[in-house]
Simulated assay, not measured.
Amino acid sequence: MTAPSKPWYVYLIRAANGALYCGITDDVERRFAAHRTGRGARFFRSSPALAVAYVESCADRREALRREYAIKRLSKASKEALAASQLPA
């Protein structure tokens, strides 16, 4: 019997210039910290990471990669709508 896989997450991070960066990880807090310190993605070299704007849980890495691909194909307005969907009420 195979042990259940750990969850993976698709996330959007807001950069200082207003852009949204999409990625996947198995630990959102650790990954955000890496982006904040410049060890994450080159994307944040020109505009620092400010906040996690959206997180979506996926069953496994494969599902997370598929969802990341779908989100990256969305328009800026659609990505903003995703981010707005998780704002506190």
Rank of each mutant, 00 (worst) to 15 (best):
V52I: 07
Y21N: 04
R66N: 05
L20C: 12
V55R: 01
C22I: 10
A81K: 11
S46C: 13
S47D: 11
I71H: 03
A81W: 09
A51D: 14
A81N: 09
E56H: 13
C22H: 00
N17W: 02
A19V: 06
I13H: 02
S47A: 15
D27R: 11
E29R: 14
S57K: 15
F32N: 00
P48Y: 13
V52W: 00
T2Q: 05
G23V: 03
E56R: 10
A59R: 10
E68R: 05
A51Q: 15
S75G: 09
A33R: 14
V10Y: 00
N17D: 15
T25E: 04
Y21P: 01
F43M: 08
R36P: 00
F43V: 12
L74H: 02
R39K: 10
W8K: 02
N17T: 04
R66T: 06
A84V: 05
S78W: 06
L65Q: 09
S47G: 07
A33W: 08
I71L: 08
L82W: 03
C58G: 05
P88M: 11
V55L: 09
Y54C: 06
S75T: 13
L74Q: 09
R73H: 08
R73G: 02
R66Y: 07
A64R: 01
A51C: 07
D26H: 12
M1H: 06
R36S: 04
S85D: 04
A3W: 10
G23C: 10
K72N: 08
L74R: 03
A19L: 04
Y54F: 15
A70C: 06
R66H: 11
C22L: 00
D26K: 09
R31V: 01
R62G: 10
G40A: 07
D26N: 15
F43C: 03
S78D: 15
R45D: 11
Y69V: 06
A59N: 08
A81M: 10
L20F: 11
R61C: 02
Y9G: 03
R42T: 04
D26S: 12
P7Y: 05
Y54D: 02
F44H: 03
V52S: 01
D60A: 01
R39N: 15
R42A: 10
K72R: 15
A51V: 02
T2R: 14
S46P: 04
R39G: 07
K79F: 03
T37K: 11
S57A: 15
